[in-house]
């Protein structure tokens, strides 16, 4: 049985907090659903420490990062974590300068190794409430990478020029 993928929403300002609160309003309280806000004037190192702290609470869980803006600091930090994770999976031939931070080797990592599979990460940009709900509803039966492709596939359907659709509905002869 696939492990339940944890979801971490990352954003500029309190957008991610608001998205998670809104999702809980609709889907009910959900475990392993966290957010990290990049405060105004906060640097990447401080933001990364906050993300690492959240990741440590999930121990061995797989993680899907949903980020607000492609190329922004939250997206860039998640990209670094993703690449470090991927590198660790391909033999961990990290050079001196690319050594992951001290959080490596936490109990979670050990537990994941013992269970025969390491945790995996996935990362999708452009999060909105529809996408977050879709992720919550499907995370129990999809691996993070499957979940990521699924979200990218369905995301366009969450954005609708509703006025046009409504007018077409009105004009349509019944």
């Amino acid at each position: 049985m696939p492990r339940m993928t944890a979801i971490v929403v990352l954003s500029h300002g309190s957008l991610s907090k608001g998205l998670v609160e809104a999702a809980c309003m609709i889907a009910g309280k959900s475990s392993k659903l966290e957010y990290v806000c990049l405060e105004e004037g906060e640097g990447p190192e401080s933001f990364r420490r906050k993300v690492d702290a959240v990741l440590n609470t999930f121990s061995e869980d797989d993680v899907l990062f949903l980020v607000d803006l492609f190329g922004g600091t939250p997206s860039n930090i998640a990209s670094m974590l993703f690449l470090e994770r991927a590198q660790a999976d391909t033999g961990g031939q990290t050079s001196e300068c690319t050594k992951p931070p001290v959080e490596q080797g936490s109990q979670g990592e050990v537990a994941a190794l013992a269970s025969g599979r390491r945790r995996s990460f996935a990362l999708v940009t452009g999060v909105n409430l529809g996408m977050l709900l879709e992720a919550i509803n499907n995370r129990a039966n999809m691996r993070p990478d499957e979940l990521a492709s699924h979200l990218v596939e369905v995301a366009p359907a969450t954005i609708v020029d509703l006025g046009r659709v409504l007018l077409e509905g009105v004009r349509k002869p019944s």
């Binding site: 492609f70 860039n76 670094m80 690449l83 470090e84 300068c97 690319t98």
Partner: peptide
């Protein structure tokens, strides 16, 4: 010097270029 020595960061910067 430190960013140039970090291959991950290099990849991130190049893939997210506008």
């Amino acid at each position: 010097d430190s960013v140039a020595a970090n291959p991950f960061q290099k990849v991130v910067l190049q893939t997210t270029a506008p």
